[in-house]
Amino acid sequence: MKISTLKELLDAQVLTCEENMGKHVYSACGCDLMSDVLAYVKDQAVLLTGLVNPQVIRTAEMMDMICVVFVRSKMPSEEMIRLAEESGIVIMLSNKRLYEACGILYSNGLVGNKVKP
């Protein structure tokens, strides 16, 4: 799925790295606990979360993720925007809740496990 499709499905607003909207992603993970992301994520390129602090962006960077979706329209700080810009990570804001946002993406073919064509 293209990141631009993800934006449409989640009716999201893009805050950083608009130039990466054409990149393809194959799996995602929804999580508020960065400890779990660090321990269990494999090749998921998208992180959906309700947690908003700079560690979310750094965790995504460590895991080579390229898109972070903040649910319930939580606004990231300027520092987070800067970190994401530096790392090429697309930040999106969706007013959907975590469960709903994950469900929409999942039912449109963005799975939880690594599946690459």
Binding site: D32, L33, S35, D36, L38, A39, L51, N53, Q55, T59
Partner: peptide, 12 residues
């Protein structure tokens, strides 16, 4: 509440 403290750090 900051997203850490699951006790997975050292094992990781």
């Amino acid at each position: 509440t900051l997203g850490f403290g699951a006790g997975m750090g050292l094992p990781n």
